[in-house]
Amino acid sequence: MERIPILKMGEFLLVTIQVDMHDRLALALQDDLTQRIVDTSARGVLIDISALDVVDSFIGRTLGNIAAMSRILDAETVVVGMRPAVAITLVELGLPLHGVRTALDVEKGMGLLRKAVAGRRPGDGYRAQ
């Protein structure tokens, strides 16, 4: 089965989703990412969805789950590059993804991750939100 590649950049993991994901592929990404966070002790995950022209409730929920799971594993997640039409549709759908950090592009997302990681005190892994 095809997999979405995960790149390691220093203490961060970078995922660029470039295909229209079917549900099993989205779940596989969730498995792979959580595994890689543990394997590499990553402090942050950046998911670039600028190529996606549809994010339905399943993909949206998977993104939310990834953010929540990585937080438990002591890594911050930032989703970047969501298109306006996708954002409007997600809001209409009733999925505003509270609890997921977002940024306009990869560069701003990286900045946000660095700031978030620097601002965390050690041992502050899980915070209820």
Binding site: R83, A87, P96, T102, L104
Partner: peptide, 12 residues
Amino acid sequence: LKTVAAARLMGA
């Protein structure tokens, strides 16, 4: 309000 929510999803 929806616009504010959509902008937030985009990172603004």
